[in-house]
Amino acid sequence: MTTNRIPTAQPARRRSARRFNSAYLFIAPSLVLIAVFIAEPIVQSGWMSLHDWMVGESSHRFVGFANYTRLFHDSRFWNALRVTVVYTLVVSVGQVVLGLAIASRLRRTTWYSTLLRTAYFFPFIASLVVVGIIWKFLLDPQVGLVDAWLAAVGVSPPAWLQSTALALPTVMAVGIWKNVGFTMIVLLASMQQVPRDLYEAAALDGAGAWRQFRNVTLPALRPALLFTTVIATVNGLQLFDLVFSMTSGGPIFHTESVVMYLYQKGFVEFQMGYASAIAWVLFVIILGISAVQLRVLRYRDVD
């Protein structure tokens, strides 16, 4: 109020501010986009899920919750759900634990740890589809590098992606390989913010490396750990690209994720009503899990 350079504009702004909060103008673009391109489509797919919505037909029969009842009795859906949950659990835990282990090893900045950080981070910049294509080929029993190297050291390699027992673990390993560098970098940055004297104090108290890690490092990393876990969980539950390019869901549905199944029903067989029902069940599951995680996440907003 000390300057009076724009005498007319000033009171006008304040008057309108009383009537209308300009904060709404700031959030408007994002909210409109979210409403049009995310929220409304979700509602619409809910509407489709209540119909026998075959693509190509001009009218769609209303069937109530029949699609959901069918889904409940669909063993292939339950299988897909199991695959998705197992993948999500293993990959998010694996990614965070390995990321943490690597980050604590590469904490100090030397030329070789910088080099290694770059190496670990590199797969993160490739797209999942490209990663899937490369790994499918790497694991090829005839011309793949993995089997050739294993054979060279006298190990008889299994049929990674053709085996019903190994296909899912293999896909999970590739999932971890792809994103462990991301987790590592996030955790590393967090670690480097921990004040050095905390470690020195702990050391003077007689804490060994492990106790220092548990009592000093881990608590400081809590926000970063939560962040990486949430991201990994959401990505895991939406698993599609990797499976699509590596196994197409096979062998015998052993790697078929929920989104893969949804895709098959909706986009290959054109049963949009049923696919929408699958989509909605998945949406509710993800929302439930993330509600729990958001509650935990909110922890870090209090500062």
């Binding site: 979210i34 929220a39 409304e40 797919s45 599609f240 989509a279 998945l282 949406f283 993800i286 993330s290």
Partner: peptide, 22 residues
């Protein structure tokens, strides 16, 4: 804020057909 965070959880395949129509 909660609404925005919730959209982070929506798989693309859930919305693709309605988005296409729009």
């Amino acid at each position: 804020f909660v609404l925005i965070l919730a959209t982070l959880m929506v798989p693309f395949q859930v919305t693709v057909v309605p988005v296409f129509l729009t």
